[in-house]
Design a protein around this nucleic acid. Structure first.
Lengths: 164, 164
DNA sequence: TATACTGATTGTGATTTGCAACTGGTTGTG
DNA sequence: CACAACCAGTTGCAAATCACAATCAGTATA
């Protein structure tokens, strides 16, 4: 085992990889917001991440095999970040986090409708979502159901009904 | 909403409360190791937490309503830390973290048998475990099934079979 | 040529972390 | 009663990390 690790406990090792204030925010935005470029992640971030932190986290997540990076053919300087399989398998974890946060923290309604939908959908919905993420980020075929569209629709409806 | 929060997203708010390298380690040790005193948490910690960090985390977790503290009648200086309901509801989240860590990090076998059991047991086992935690940490009646004992037995067996 | 956009880096100060020593008090033992 | 062990922390300090704002050089667009 790598001496750099504090222990071989799965909870500890998960914490060592993702236990900071920004890593899962970045993954959340790539996953649920489909943000694939540095600037998209930087400017559309609800929590306004700093650019050096974002650069550092992207580098670390790529190094740890959670994201992967490729050139954008439309622009020689642009990079496209995608979820790797380990990050896709974080769906149940993020669903659990959303469910817990919805009960025990002061969430806003618009930002929690997706968490609610994902919680109620259960493992069946998570599997469908993961299949879709494999299509969007890896080379898997498109699944019949688009959980992404369902989540977006629910979010947009919540935003709309909040305005009017 | 409190202006101290970065956003009203449930994932973000969960991260603000628990997204550091130690908070969930402390909760894990109270929950799965049934460690209730400061020194138990300090000395038996697999990851060797520093005493000032432990003191800070315990204070924060109590302030945030995840743990609660009472005097130990057997010793005027001893304090007993217990899980509050929000922390008990972290069981599915910790199960998901364990399951992910088991697949994507270099876990040790002894320390991952509990995670495996908890993953395979599914929501039914998590509910039974939460009922038992409510008995151990709150004033709920004792449930018929002891998931705690099942987890400990599996862990001890793994340790045994590793030695011999 | 001017403007905006690309993924970052740099500099600075504030905060958090890790480590070791220490504190004031309590309890059990000879 | 003396003394060691134990109790929950606190203190001091160096190192690492974080947050914020300004900046960078190389594209693309007008």
């Amino acid at each position: 085992m790598d001496a750099a690790h504090r222990s071989g406990c799965p909870i500890n090792l998960t914490l060592e990889m993702l236990g900071d204030r920004w890593s899962l925010i970045v993954i959340r935005d790539v996953m649920f917001g489909n943000r694939r470029h540095f600037r998209e992640l930087l400017n559309n971030s609800e929590e306004s991440i700093a650019s050096n932190i974002l650069a550092d986290r992207l580098k670390r997540l790529v190094a740890n095999g959670l994201l992967w990076k490729r050139d954008d053919p439309s622009h020689s300087q642009k990079a496209i970040y995608s979820l790797a399989e380990p990050a896709i398998q974080l769906v149940p974890l993020l669903a659990a986090m959303g469910a817990w946060g919805r009960r025990h923290t002061p969430v806003s309604r618009e930002l929690s409708v997706r968490a609610e939908l994902l919680e109620n959908g259960g493992p069946q919905m998570w599997d469908a979502f993961m299949a879709e993420l494999r299509h969007l980020h890896l080379d898997a075929p498109a699944p019949a159901r688009s959980v992404f569209a369902e989540l977006q629709a629910a979010y947009l409806e919540a935003v709309q009904s909040g305005i009017e």
